[in-house]
Design a binder for these strands. Sequence first.
DNA 1: CTGTTAGCGCATTCAT
DNA 2: ATGAATGCGCTAACAG
Lengths: 364, 364
Amino acid sequence: MHMFKIKLQILNLLLTIKFIYAIIACRNVSTEVKIIKRVTIKDVAREAGTSISAVSYVLNGSTKKKYSENTVKLIKDAAKKLNYVPNNIARGMRVQKSYSIGIVNFWDIHNHVFVKNLKGIVETANKYKYSVVICPVSNKNVNDYSYIDYYKNRRIDGIVFIAPVKSEYVINEEEHIKRMEAAGVPYVIINTSLDSDKPCYFKYDFFDATYTAAVYLIQRGYKDITYVTPKISEDYPENYERMTGYKIAMEKFGLNFRMIDINDIDKEIMEGFSAVVANKSDTAKKIMDKAIEYGFKIPDDFSIVAANIENYSQFLHVPLTCSQIPIFKIAQRATDILINIINDKTTDDFEKIKCEIVEGKSVK
Amino acid sequence: MHMFKIKLQILNLLLTIKFIYAIIACRNVSTEVKIIKRVTIKDVAREAGTSISAVSYVLNGSTKKKYSENTVKLIKDAAKKLNYVPNNIARGMRVQKSYSIGIVNFWDIHNHVFVKNLKGIVETANKYKYSVVICPVSNKNVNDYSYIDYYKNRRIDGIVFIAPVKSEYVINEEEHIKRMEAAGVPYVIINTSLDSDKPCYFKYDFFDATYTAAVYLIQRGYKDITYVTPKISEDYPENYERMTGYKIAMEKFGLNFRMIDINDIDKEIMEGFSAVVANKSDTAKKIMDKAIEYGFKIPDDFSIVAANIENYSQFLHVPLTCSQIPIFKIAQRATDILINIINDKTTDDFEKIKCEIVEGKSVK
DNA sequence: CTGTTAGCGCATTCAT
DNA sequence: ATGAATGCGCTAACAG
């Protein structure tokens, strides 16, 4: 016990010297640079008169060890008094974690798909006390794998991978996955085009988007519902899936389906419209522009639902009723699962996230 | 020299044991957890047959020390062979840096002002090999100062502070600044309401937005230009600044100014319009909706310029011509300056960033 | 030119 | 119940 006291005294002395030294250093600096003393666990230990490990245990609330009430109080008071903030770099160094996850994104930051994902990811991560890092990848080059170094770097504990639009980029998803797994990176993939029942794959259900739109109209009494889309390209499955969703909905309710190319629409065709499912907001906007041109009133002359939502959808001349893929919710869940994977927890069996209708004023 | 060789042998032996141990550990794990050996500087040193510090110096390209061409080659080859990625946590631990900057943002993530800032910040940071962290702050609570702990944590090296809209939040900017300075955090503030000529303050120039819009119309030959705005509230300086910008432009060119409340507009007033500066896109949209209602054609019957830009501005029935505060460029420059501050460099004297016109189809 | 070594701040195993 | 000692991976001052 005597020995211990002496050691503490020495520690005390050393730290005091360190302080004085810092002050001298400050005075020697002629510029305006401020040297702000960073309070460490050592300082807290000194202030509390305990050992460093006691501080670590108490402040981390570990249940493995018990300290006397008195010691605990001493340490907590000292930490508060010194305004102690644990250094997460050092902590991460020790426990091999950074408590942050990285976003690998190949969309333009301005795109609302990315923005909704970002919001879902940030909110969920923060809930778990994780922070979010934007991994520097080129959105011009979908074959950029440098983000994996971010994991090796230990700057991040896992990755939320947001796959790009399939129509614009040819991305080798398998290769990305292969490399992440080779490096042992915990990951989830949003907007994957791969079929897998692994919980870390999240597919956007374009089928459900048009299905939901059609059912919405059917439930409101419409029977004559036209599907309007640009020409469907075979090598772009999303378009095909959208079309099929509408088709299945119509079949299910015993209704006839009719598909029209947006470029073929003229005044005469429009006169025949009762209700329209547009494959996207872009298409709906084109229809709306023509409606204004020809003097049709929406929704008085016909109703319209778009099978996705865009930034501008609610700001069109007639605010658009849309069915939307719940990008935000999917991002939340993906992040949730990622953090569970990181912490080796099993994930609850979530129910499927379905498309939602956002009501505008384009349906009567 | 002999001594050194022996030491190397021992190091070699120890590392080999470590490897074997890791393999055994792997086999003992019955679950699917993969233990991925992380290659460290030690491994590279062993592979190259040099010391650890040699590897550090060579790989960091330090000019302070010279190593023989042979050694350099040996080390570089070894690093490549082992696919070595330096551990930035450890590096940061040593040099007290994280090479990442934090965004403190009180806007909704969905808001395009935030999104444009994000893009500017991310692109610039990456240019300097810095990564970007979204600091977890509540956008409901502008008195949340917890982000400062992120600096003390050393998870970030500096902060880009994006001040919220003044009309919606009462934020105590002075207090935020005081605390950042007290903690010694390098920072820049975007959208500040404070007047300061420090290079780390970035003010949005609402004055310039309407000024630019008015001048644009004047230069196209318009003389009768009306300013349309909602009622101006005195305690919301932005509105006043916008109005003044228009006013000064008109005075400068010897033209009469006329201001109309958006809520007072009817068909008769609209008939008198030749050209309009709208304080915002919201206002322009309202005018446009009324124009459609009354059967006016834009820009045939009158032209219109909005003194800001929104996500939807280009998607209105008539794409809107806008003057925009260059949020993206300001964010780029702010980030640039922040990183200069972090690295104690002086910043070049930048010229003022002026508002830009984004042409739509609402001006003849 | 090259190697040794002392920490950076913290968590944790071992010793008492 | 409490402390001491070690090391995570790396940089840089120091020693040849």
